[in-house]
Amino acid sequence: MTTEAAGAGALLTILRDGRARTRAELMQLTGLARSTVSQRLDALSDQRWIIPSNDAISSGGRPAVAFAFNAGARIVLAADLGATHARLAVTDLATQVLAEHSADVPITDGPEKVLGWLVDAFHRLLDESGHTLDQVCGAGIGLPGPVEHQTGLPVNPPIMPGWDGFDVPGWLGRRLGVPILVDNDVNIMALGEHWAASPEIEHLLFVKVATGIGSGIITEHRLHRGAQGAAGDIGHIRVTTSDIVCRCGNTGCLEAVASGAALAALLRAAGEDAANSRDVVALVRAGNARAVQLVRQAGRDIGEVLAALVNFFNPGGIIIGGDMADAGEYLLAGVREVVYSRSLPLATQHLSIRVRQLDDRAGVIGASVLVIEHILSPGVIDEAVAAHA
Rank of each mutant, 00 (worst) to 15 (best):
M1D: 09
T3Q: 15
A5S: 14
A6P: 08
G9K: 04
A10Q: 11
A10D: 12
L12K: 02
R19F: 09
R21G: 14
A24Y: 01
L26D: 00
M27G: 03
R34Y: 14
S35E: 10
T36E: 05
V37R: 07
Q39P: 05
L41W: 10
A43R: 10
S45Y: 08
W49C: 06
I50A: 04
I50D: 04
S59G: 11
A64C: 06
A71G: 11
V76D: 00
L77I: 04
A78S: 14
G82A: 11
L93I: 09
P106C: 06
I107T: 14
I107H: 01
G110I: 03
K113R: 15
G116E: 01
W117C: 00
L118V: 06
A121I: 03
L126F: 08
L126Q: 09
E128T: 15
E128N: 12
C137N: 10
I141L: 05
G142H: 03
E148M: 00
T151P: 02
G152R: 01
L153S: 04
L153R: 12
L153N: 07
M160E: 06
D164C: 02
G165S: 08
R174C: 06
R174K: 11
G177I: 13
P179G: 01
V182F: 02
V182C: 03
D185W: 01
M189T: 09
M189L: 10
A190Q: 01
A190L: 13
H194Y: 05
W195M: 00
E202C: 14
L204S: 01
L205G: 04
V207F: 00
A210E: 13
G212T: 13
G212R: 02
R225Q: 04
A231M: 06
A231K: 11
D233Q: 15
I237D: 07
T240E: 13
T241E: 15
V245W: 13
G249I: 09
E255Y: 06
V257F: 07
S259Y: 09
A265H: 14
L266G: 08
R268Q: 15
A274I: 06
A275M: 09
Q297S: 15
R300E: 15
V305D: 02
A308S: 14
F312H: 08
D323H: 07
A325D: 05
A327M: 03
A327Y: 05
G328C: 11
G328E: 12
Y330L: 12
L332I: 08
G334E: 11
S341F: 14
R342P: 07
Q349N: 13
Q349V: 10
L351G: 13
I353C: 08
D359E: 14
D360T: 05
A362D: 12
V364Y: 01
I365D: 06
G366N: 10
L370E: 02
L376E: 07
V380L: 13
I381L: 08
